[in-house]
Design a protein around this nucleic acid. Structure first.
Length: 287
DNA sequence: GTTGTCGAGTTTTCGCGCTA
DNA sequence: TAGCGCGAAAACTCGACAAC
């Protein structure tokens, strides 16, 4: 997750010494540092390393955060003539990240190679078209294959999974193979954008409650069920208020089902009922 | 309609090592 | 020490799409 306040990383000894002296001079006499290219290059390099730990595609606001944090920590780096003192830094970071992505693309980093022109559909082979990047909470968006594995070897594991899933008491093996083939599955989804029915026939093992929970965890590093239930519990009182205010046929239906809670007000019943009311509220089949 | 962003490619700048 | 070539990094351009 992008931090609310970006922490500027420490630079190498030489650069820190340079900045320390320049900051002292800036505080004493208000003179800003005339930046040597080598120092600028090192600063951009270190900042881009830190940004890369969080995002391959930082937004304009993200880069603004970084630039602001930089001039806040090192006032001598403020730019005269810039409306906020760091606009030039933001632009340089933007270039730096774009060049870094080009470098990573050349090295085969999957998260950026999926957006290279040669990996786009022929009819939409345009740079800005359909750029795939992690959405909120997607930590392992497009991971690399495990060491020593290739697309071909993982395809063999996928085929093996089709028979493994049919065996009894074989959950452990299925779990291991699903774990192993995660990167392959992600790349298949992101590159191929398959239809759900096709994907389901290729990966039937994924469509079980346990494996969906695990897959969610692999992508977001969060446990799906407990995260969901915690949020459900948090919003339940407010949802109940909304349901009570609902009028019409849906309102009557909800009030009929509400009797269940009065009979057995445990946490499980309450959760089940809130989900049921939500279905009715949204005019969907709660059964 | 405007602004920002993308990948790819190009140009510019800079530093380094070598040589005379 | 100046001049040169080279490579890496930074900066820029392009033509398009996407988001607001």
């Amino acid at each position: 997750m992008w931090p609310s306040v970006f922490t500027v990383p420490p630079f190498n000894y030489e650069s820190e010494l340079h900045l320390e002296t320049a900051n002292a001079e800036c505080n004493a006499s208000g003179t800003y540092l005339s930046l040597p290219p080598k120092l600028k290059s090192h600063i951009l390099e270190r900042l881009s390393e830190e940004i890369l730990k969080l995002k391959v595609y930082p937004t304009d606001n993200d880069l603004n955060d970084v630039a602001e944090a930089l001039v806040k920590k090192h006032p001598c780096l403020s730019e005269q003539g810039s409306f906020n003192g760091c606009y030039g830094w933001k632009i340089s970071l933007k270039y730096k990240m774009a060049n870094l992505r080009s470098k990573l693309r050349g090295l085969g980093c999957p998260e950026v190679t999926i957006n290279s022109l040669k990996n786009k559909n022929q009819d939409k082979r345009l740079a800005a078209s359909n750029v795939k990047k992690p959405r909120r909470a997607e930590v392992n968006y497009c991971p690399q294959h495990p060491k020593g594995e290739t697309t071909e070897s993982l395809e063999k594991d996928r085929v093996a999974l089709l028979s493994e899933i049919k065996k009894r008491n074989n959950e452990h093996i299925v779990k291991l193979k699903m774990e192993k083939t995660f990167s392959y599955r992600r790349q298949e989804i992101l590159k191929g954008e398959p239809l759900i029915a096709d994907f389901k026939s290729r990966w039937p093992a994924l469509f079980t409650a346990r494996e969906i929970d695990r897959e969610f965890h692999r992508i977001s590093t969060l446990p799906l069920l407990s995260t969901f239930c915690a949020a459900l519990d948090q919003y339940s009182p407010r949802l109940m208020e909304i349901f009570r205010c609902k009028g019409g046929a849906a309102g009557r239906k909800i009030r009929n089902v509400m009797v269940e809670i009065s009979k057995d007000d445990t946490i499980q019943t309450r959760r089940a009922c809130v989900l049921k009311y939500l279905c009715i509220y949204l005019n969907e089949d709660h059964e």
